[in-house]
Amino acid sequence: MITVQNIYKSFGEKEVLKNVSSTFYPGKTNLIIGRSGAGKTVFLKMLVGLFEPTDGKILYGDKDFFALDKKELRELRMEVGMLFQGSALFDSLTVEENVRFPLDMFTNMTNGEKLNRVNEILDRVSLNNANSNFPGEISGGMQKRVGIARAIVLNPKYLFCDEPNSGLDPKTSIVIDELIQDITRENNITTVINTHDMNSVMEIGDNITLLYNGKVAWQGKNTDVMDSENELLQDFIFASPFLQKLRKQALNK
């Protein structure tokens, strides 16, 4: 479980996050949603330690992330996986080498054991025959799956995904969403997803945090979205007139 307590973050004069508190649960897909510039990416990067908060705490279990010493931080990092918006696959390495990279760097497994683990993970994300391809040779959806495979190859306790559906068609987005949700439940991972995708919100949003102007504007589950009277949430989720009409029809039924 990750607990965020009264986080503030400023860049110079600009305050990006203001008193943000939230809890992200294991075995659930925890979503951070909000408009562009709401502070989602800064929040996610702070959760993984790429930015330090101006004030407040982030607790991984009962450990204060920013109070850990180097050794503890390194141990914790081994429990964290992240899928980046652009997948962040190493261009000069093949799919297999990309997924094997954390194993090479942090484990003492034999080459055979590493290969078995890589194949097992690639099989899990349905990429059985892509071992020798380079990232530039595979589709965006496949790159996301390789990114997921690399993120989970060390069996992390925490998985972070920055806009996993950006640039993907709706069908592929659903495949990626389902994959993330299945992996989260199978391994009881605390998954935090930063997304704009409304389909993701409605389908896999076990625990949703809406950010608006750097503050938490709403928290709840996907099943609460339709009934919520929160204007900011409704403005965001049902942004287009078409979706607003659909919502009205659904509520009238």
Binding site: K45, V48, G49, L50, L73, R74, R77, M78, V80, G81, M82, F84, Q85, G86, A88, F90, D91, F101, P102, M105, F106, F160
Partner: peptide, 12 residues
């Protein structure tokens, strides 16, 4: 391309 961030998060 966030490769450095990816490595940092892995603990490299």
């Amino acid at each position: 391309k966030e490769h450095i961030d990816a490595m940092e998060i892995m603990g490299v």
